[in-house]
Amino acid sequence: METTQLIYAVTGALIIGLGLSAALRDEPLLARIIAINIAGVGVFLLFVAIAYRGFGQTADPIPHALVLTGIVVAVAASGLAIAINRRLHHDSPSGDGPAEDSSA
């Protein structure tokens, strides 16, 4: 049981790292949303691995409930980001370049 937990938990941790490093790169918005979602799934995998109690045993339901909440929040956030991006493209279809941060 512990080996199983460990395998999945470490995989989750690696996926978090992969997703985060991709999310922080400069990419089109859609790629960054994918990256954030993948990192999120990594966190969920970590939670599920922690909840696992061995073959045939009922798992800890608390992390499961947390992950369910997390999944719904993630889809809401992705939808919001895509809606903003869509409006941005609609308003300036020429794609007039990235956000000019006045701090840059």
Partner: peptide
């Protein structure tokens, strides 16, 4: 405003 909101959100 939309660009700033997007960056803030992400």
């Amino acid at each position: 405003a939309l660009r700033a909101a997007l960056r803030y959100l992400l």
